[in-house]
């Protein structure tokens, strides 16, 4: 778990440098999310998308990582109930 956290933060920190360079260049595609028809969470994120893309990108990355972690550990829990041996393998082949 600790390893995972460390890795996560390392990955986050690492994204910084090239990204700042990227941020300057304008992309040819401009999309405005239609916040008029949204409510709640979706509205918040669509709004961020329109106004503060850096924070939006940060959220997107962090949430993806968190959800991935969550699903990974949840599935691990479920799989451990199946009675399969999930820590070793018999077939030894290169």
């Amino acid at each position: 778990m600790k390893k995972m956290l460390l890795l996560l933060s390392a990955a986050l920190g690492w994204t910084l440098l090239p990204v700042l360079a990227f941020a300057g260049g304008a992309s040819e595609l401009v999309v405005v999310a239609d916040t008029r028809v949204l409510t709640g969470m979706a509205k918040y994120f669509a709004n961020l998308y329109n106004t503060n893309i850096v924070l939006f990108a940060l959220w997107a990355t962090v949430l993806t990582a968190l959800y991935g972690c969550f699903l990974g550990f949840l599935m691990d829990f479920i799989m451990s109930r199946s009675g399969l041996d999930l820590t070793s393998r018999k077939i030894v082949e290169h």
Binding site: S9, L16, D34, T51, V54, L55
Partner: peptide
Amino acid sequence: VAIITTLLLMAAFAASALAAEVAQ
């Protein structure tokens, strides 16, 4: 890592005001 993350967060929050309206 902590310093870099904090800087990034600050940059993100300082970038602009949050609420925007949309018209079509």
